[in-house]
Computed example of a mutant assay.
Amino acid sequence: MHFPEDIKYHPEHTWIKVAGDTGTIGITDYAQEELGEILYVDLPQVGDKVEKDGIFGAIESGKVSSDLYSPVSGEVIAVNEELEESPELVNESPYDKGWLIKVRLSDTSELEDLLERREYLEKINI
């Protein structure tokens, strides 16, 4: 499994990579492996608001359906539309092609509450 250093991790297995006031959000390599083959991703619309620790969508695999938790608050400015036709991108490339949404952050101080790579690895016992 791969866990990049340049992103922040949410305890509910989402991640965020920030550039300026924009954050790209997805699920971790650990989460996609635990879920198994991703069959469907239910995501918000551009313009929707997300709240830190709030549910912004769901992801379904052959095993289970899981809620997606936002690591930050903000406005959705992009949705990975490729996932509609190819949800397996989340399995194949959780940090690149399998990203879920992009958000314009409303409060960058929320990033301080997220986990660093080392802390996330401790949480999942790796």
Score class of each variant (00 low, 15 high):
M1N: 11
F3Q: 01
P4A: 10
D6P: 08
D6T: 12
Y9W: 12
P11I: 07
T14G: 14
T14P: 05
W15H: 07
K17R: 15
T22H: 05
T22R: 13
G23R: 01
G23C: 07
T24A: 12
I25C: 09
I27C: 01
I27R: 01
Y30K: 02
A31I: 01
A31G: 00
E33S: 13
E33Y: 01
E34Q: 15
L35P: 04
E37Y: 11
E37L: 14
L39G: 11
L39R: 06
Y40C: 07
V41M: 13
V41K: 06
P44Y: 04
Q45V: 03
V46R: 08
V46C: 09
G47K: 00
K49Y: 01
E51L: 14
E51K: 14
K52G: 04
F56M: 12
A58Y: 05
I59A: 03
G62Y: 05
G62H: 02
S65I: 15
P71D: 13
V72W: 08
V72N: 10
V72R: 09
G74C: 09
V76W: 00
A78N: 14
V79R: 07
N80L: 09
E82W: 01
E82L: 14
E82H: 09
L83F: 07
E84L: 09
S86G: 10
P87E: 11
P87H: 08
E88I: 12
V90E: 09
V90H: 10
V90T: 09
V90F: 06
N91Y: 11
N91D: 13
E92D: 14
P94A: 10
Y95G: 03
D96Y: 10
W99G: 10
K102Y: 05
R104K: 15
R104F: 01
D107L: 03
T108P: 05
T108S: 15
L111I: 14
D113Q: 15
E116Q: 13
R117F: 07
R118A: 15
E119K: 02
E119T: 00
Y120Q: 04
K123W: 09
K123R: 15
N125D: 15
N125P: 00
I126N: 03
